[in-house]
Amino acid sequence: METFDLKVDDVRALNKAIHQSANGRSFAVEHPGGKHSLAVGVNASLDVEINGHAGYYAAGMNQGGRITIHGNAGVGVAENMMSGIVHVTGDASQSAGATAHGGLLVIDGNASARCGISMKGVDIVVGGNIGHMSAFMAQAGRLVVCGDAGEALGDSIYEARIYVKGKVASLGADCVAKEMREEHLAELAGLLHAAGRDGDPADFTRYGSARTLYNFHVDNSSAY
């Protein structure tokens, strides 16, 4: 375990050390103090424990790392993640998991606006609520929300799947509730398990694309 104390060490040294590390190493980050770009560009199977709140883009573009933020995460946590696991024990700010292609993002608390915006294959499990415009233009992957969802959920969604247990303030254009078939119950059970959460998949509702905006039709022009 290599420790970086950000009261003394700078973020650049932390990231450089992580980039030069082989699989299996582990890092602890003390006094993160909301600093930005913590543990970005991880490119190995290694562990990073951030002991406190992180600023913007923590764990950005993670590839294979297991990164835990013991606290809140700022804007764009795990943005464009490719693989690996990012776990936020507190809340996440806007655009959590934005454009992420793969891996698993677990947020124990709430996520604010634009959670999973343009997601491209990542799995996101949020223990609490999510804010407005979440899963906007979501292309692929799964977004699980154990609490409530804000306005315009899944606007212009493509092939991503959304599971919400609580209330949905409103659905965005082309996003509709869908039947929970066996494969969806199984998929959701797997995601909840992976995120270390209890809960009955049958309590959730699935949302996805009505696919009416996939090719332009004049009757849908108000949705553009």
Binding site: G33, G34, K35, G52, H53, G55, Y56, N72, G74, G90, D91, S93, Q94, N110, S112, A113, G131
Partner: peptide
């Protein structure tokens, strides 16, 4: 940003939200 709040007394037990 959160980092501006990080040193306030009692921040660890504050209600934090956007």
């Amino acid at each position: 940003e959160f980092r501006a709040l990080a040193e306030l007394p009692g921040i660890e037990n504050a209600r934090i939200f956007e």
